[in-house]
Design a protein around this nucleic acid. Structure first.
Lengths: 329, 329
DNA sequence: ATGAAAGCGCTAACAT
DNA sequence: ATGTTAGCGCTTTCAT
């Protein structure tokens, strides 16, 4: 492969001029520009990003940290990040941590090693202390999961309010036995959604019953099935479910369908996220719609601004309750 | 951030020696090594990949081309690629082409620009001519979709046989009115699966009826719903469906459920891929299981070997028919 | 075992 | 408008 030197020689100009043509600097005469462009074509020259990156000490790569690529919640966010990144001439490196600190370390090092210009973390399991440390010297943005009172800018929704509205919806439908399928409350979003859940119950003077609050280890379908199995074992069974993710809600739905009970007649369900599959289940799933695509766009914009030295502010986006068959009795 | 020069100075050695310590070259005395390691710690030095990559003229990045990240079929493959890549000290760059030739071009250029060391294409819409051209100078592997008689190594399954088995399963169940929901037959896999479909019909002397063959534009859930709507309009309706992807099958299932008919009693369905959702639908979906994770691992292995100058051979992996509720009358 | 120095391909400051 | 040249940070050959 040809390099800039050879192009310069062939065109009878200096490497600087070739570089100017490459980077659309103005100070090149049309005649010279033409000569250089010919040489480039002739030699099938492609500028090396390796050289350019070293020189500019940037990689134009953004790291996107997420626990698992298989949760459809992330795919729409990633689309948003990706599109925004590309239109700013960045690329993204998808980093699945599998909630494994060692993996995480590899990725943190990539930033320190200049292989990435910044990080968007969507990983609730991320080591926040290490990330904060990283954020002292590099650009970091949190997306969806964030740290209250932390100093890393984030984009998220009002989880407490969203959960409150979801549960209130069930209460308005006449439900007074509402179970919560939550994930681990070491995560902020889980605590916030639980708070919203409890606030709705309290507002309508319903008791908070610990046996109706189930905690899952992960957000896979199977965890939702498992949760339902456990709730079915109770003496007094709930008549409705609020699950903190659509994947869990879909698993729960599967569990209920399998037991011969009917949704929503016997048990109503509300999910969270509005993943595309939530509209394909039978019955379709009532859920909280997160503006996932937009979250991705905003996060990427924030990160790129931060990389370029601007100061960025955290953003809270709007959510929406989508009422579908799983709560339409 | 400190560079190798500063470490060398602090340790009282040359940059060459620091480099040797970094790369575990043997010819460093324990004493010197210790001095250097101390200096590295003191200065919190992190070697720059930018410099190293330029020098080694490699990026240790692999491009993964796919039409859309939202099809769950790809997520498992990506997991396989990712894990294999990481254990070989490579990283992957996920490239969504959106079936847009312009996007595709950006990614091809990244390879030519040395920003990536090779490509795994899972994109059926890829410009095969351009890809073949690229493959002349760079390492390229095809995954899932490939080119018959082409010169790019691939990993795939026997699509014709898999489709044949899926349809034969329906026939054995007593179905003689079987519809095919296929994608665009400009794709090889679509033609192969259609061939398998037809071979099964012919073997049992069933007629091939064009009106029972529906072609979708994309593989989204919605396309499956649409396909079903169209099939329902026929005078003589099929009693079973073979869809060439689980997403389509799930959409079709949705369409049938919505029409008041019952699966499998009124209409049986077989899908293709065995995405994780396929076990969460109501009823669960009979499908062809592709070894997605393994496909990813094999593809990544092939690519890395190819980058390292080895000659690689194409691989055809085993599939499996998974019988679930959607065909258990 | 260690050091000196060349050079990977590029950009930009400075000079003309 | 164009050329000269000094690096960006690293690895590796060639000396010693």
């Amino acid at each position: 492969m040809a390099n800039i030197q050879q192009v310069a020689q062939k065109a009878g100009v200096s490497v600087a001029t070739v570089s100017r043509v490459l980077n659309n600097a103005t100070s090149v005469s049309p005649k010279t520009r033409l000569k250089v462009e010919h040489a480039i074509k002739d030699l099938k020259y492609e500028p090396s990003m390796l050289g350019r990156n070293l020189r500019n000490s940037e990689s134009r790569l953004l790291l996107v940290l997420l626990p698992s690529i298989s949760n459809p919640f992330y795919t729409e966010i990633i689309n948003g990040i990706q599109n925004t990144a590309i239109s700013n001439h960045y690329n993204i490196l998808l980093c699945e941590t599998d909630s494994n600190p060692q993996r995480e370390n590899i990725y943190f090092n990539m930033v320190k090693n200049k292989l990435a210009d910044g990080v968007i973390s969507m990983d609730p399991t991320v080591n926040m202390q290490k990330l904060t440390e990283l954020a002292e010297n590099y650009s970091v943005i949190l997306c969806s999961e964030y740290e209250e009172g932390g100093c890393i800018p984030y984009v998220t929704i009002d989880n407490e309010l969203a959960a409150y509205q979801a549960v209130k919806h069930l209460i308005k439908l006449g439900h007074d036995k509402i179970a919560l399928i939550n994930s681990d409350e070491k995560y902020l979003y889980a605590r916030q959604r639980r708070n919203g859940f409890e606030r709705a119950l309290q507002e309508f003077e319903l008791p908070i019953r610990e046996e109706w609050i189930y905690h899952t280890k992960e957000l896979e379908f199977q965890n939702g099935v498992q949760a339902m199995r456990s709730l079915f074992k109770l003496e007094e069974k709930p008549t409705s479910i609020f699950a903190v993710s659509d994947t869990l809600a879909i698993g729960a739905l599967k569990g209920i369908n399998g037991s011969g009970l009917h949704v929503p007649n016997d048990i109503a369900i509300v999910g969270f996220d509005n993943i595309s599959f939530s509209n394909m289940t039978n019955p379709t799933l009532t859920t909280i719609s997160q503006p996932m695509y937009k979250m991705g766009c905003v996060a990427a914009d924030m990160l790129i601004n931060s990389i370029q030295g601007e100061k960025v502010e955290s953003v809270v986006l709007e959510h929406e309750l989508i009422i579908r068959e799983s709560t339409m009795g």
